[in-house]
Amino acid sequence: MSEYERSRTMPDLPEHVFDQASVVSWFDSWLPDELHVRAQDPPALTVHEDSTGEDAAALFRADRERMRLEWGALDGSGYTGWLQVAGYGTGASEVTVHLSFADWRLDPGEADVLGALDRSLQQLEEQVRLRVEGAG
Rank of each mutant, 00 (worst) to 15 (best):
P14I: 11
D50Q: 08
H36E: 06
L59E: 12
L114D: 15
W26S: 11
T9K: 07
G91Q: 03
D112E: 15
E65Y: 01
W104P: 11
R131T: 13
W104T: 05
D118E: 15
E133L: 15
V128P: 12
A86E: 12
A44P: 02
L13V: 10
P42Y: 03
S7M: 08
A62G: 05
A135E: 15
A92S: 10
Y88W: 06
E94P: 00
L99D: 08
L74S: 04
P42D: 07
V47R: 12
L31P: 12
A56C: 01
V85A: 09
L130A: 13
D118Q: 15
D55W: 09
L117R: 14
T52I: 11
V47N: 04
S77L: 00
D12Y: 01
P42L: 05
D103E: 14
T52C: 01
G53P: 03
P43F: 05
P42F: 04
Q127V: 14
V132F: 08
E70I: 02
A21Q: 02
A116K: 15
L13C: 04
L124E: 13
G81T: 06
G115L: 12
E15K: 12
A86P: 01
E54P: 00
S77M: 03
G87A: 04
T9H: 11
L106I: 07
V17D: 01
S2C: 09
P43M: 07
V85E: 00
L99M: 06
S120T: 15
H16S: 09
T46F: 03
A73H: 02
T46W: 05
E65D: 14
L106S: 08
R105D: 14
E94W: 06
D12K: 12
L74K: 06
R61I: 01
G78C: 03
L13E: 13
E49F: 04
V97M: 03
S77F: 05
R119A: 15
Y88I: 01
A44N: 11
E54N: 08
W30H: 00
V17E: 04
S7F: 12
M10L: 14
V24H: 06
Y79D: 01
H98M: 07
D118W: 08
G109F: 07
D63L: 08
E54C: 00
G134H: 14
L45I: 07
T80W: 11
V97S: 07
A39F: 06
A39Y: 05
E34T: 05
V95R: 07
R129I: 11
M1Y: 07
V95A: 07
L35V: 03
E126N: 15
S100R: 14
G78H: 10
S7N: 08
Q127Y: 11
E126S: 15
P11H: 09
T9M: 09
A56Q: 01
E5R: 14
F60Q: 05
Q127T: 13
D41T: 09
L74C: 08
R38S: 04
S2L: 08
E15S: 10
V47Q: 05
